[in-house]
Design a protein around this nucleic acid. Structure first.
Ligand SMILES: [Zn+2]
Ligand SMILES: [Zn+2]
Ligand SMILES: [Zn+2]
Ligand SMILES: [Zn+2]
Lengths: 143, 143
DNA sequence: TTCTTCATGAGAATCATTCTCAATGCGATT
DNA sequence: AATCGCATTGAGAATGATTCTCATGAAGAA
């Protein structure tokens, strides 16, 4: 390899925001996201960082999380109460099976659902279609 | 008909809250819900009532809407921003196809989706399963 | 009507999220 | 290294939806 600078994309590691500076704060948030498997709120993640010694402003946590979500690098959904919660995720389109008790989350795919959704929308003449779908239940451990 | 008092359930009209007093305010909210076809926020509905002459406190609008939603008499979902919005709906389980531009909403059913959801959850050992599913798009009129 | 209980609403309180904007950090360029 | 230009940060104020408080009013039973 020559001395030419390259984008060094870590294969399976924390995501970075396209066209943004990889600051200490953004790295810290991205890293924190790797440390849990359930959905957490911006404030939860802020606390997590605080406790782990990383000092990141709450505003920055909000901003970073939103940027990552817009970028498709984390999944964001809303609690019953309307609070935004985040979780790292695979990049392909998928949905979630979430435990109501402990928050444990499984990513699931359903090609049939995708097709159904598009077809139903088409039947009614809707275009530019998207959808949201989450499944909630009690996981084996919590049952 | 005798003079015996009965529960007069209007067949296809505004819903009432089970075990609650049918007050002027609750009737007004239930009635307002009959006057639109898209999803509206509590505050929108409060304004609607205000403008139509009915004077109902904002707290009461919130309380009534939540009670109706808990009762399954109206559907509640959340905007991208997390705001709760409400709409009268049929009593059977269904989902929504919503126009992003004008809010026009179509109720849709998908037995296959219901089965898929339950089966996926079961495969992962989840019990007591429920789900949320909404489809968004641009309606023919807005296209 | 009288009593008991539930419902109402004006305004304060909550609480997540956004905004403000001066201070700072990053990267590129001399 | 010194410097300029601009993105980023964060403390605290502001916002805005929703909830709470609690004194007052209405509904229903007897
Ligand atoms: Zn669980
Ligand atoms: Zn999907
Ligand atoms: Zn439309
Ligand atoms: Zn369903």
């Amino acid at each position: 390899m020559t001395s030419t600078s390259r984008k060094t994309e870590d294969p399976a590691t924390a995501p970075s925001i396209a066209g943004a500076r990889p600051t200490r704060q953004r790295r810290a948030v991205a890293s924190a996201l790797q440390s849990f498997d359930d959905f957490r709120s911006a404030q939860d993640i802020h606390d997590l960082l605080r406790r782990s010694g990383e000092n990141v402003g709450l505003s920055t946590v909000y901003r970073t999380l939103q940027a990552l979500a817009d970028n498709g690098d984390v999944d964001m959904l809303r609690t019953e109460e309307g609070e935004a919660i985040y979780r790292r995720c695979s990049t392909s389109h998928h949905h979630h099976l979430v435990c109501r008790a402990c928050g444990r989350t499984v990513e699931v795919e359903g090609p049939a659902v995708e097709k159904w959704s598009d077809s139903v929308a088409a039947q009614h003449g809707f275009t530019d279609v998207s959808h949201t779908l989450e499944i909630f239940g009690t996981c084996p451990t919590c049952a």
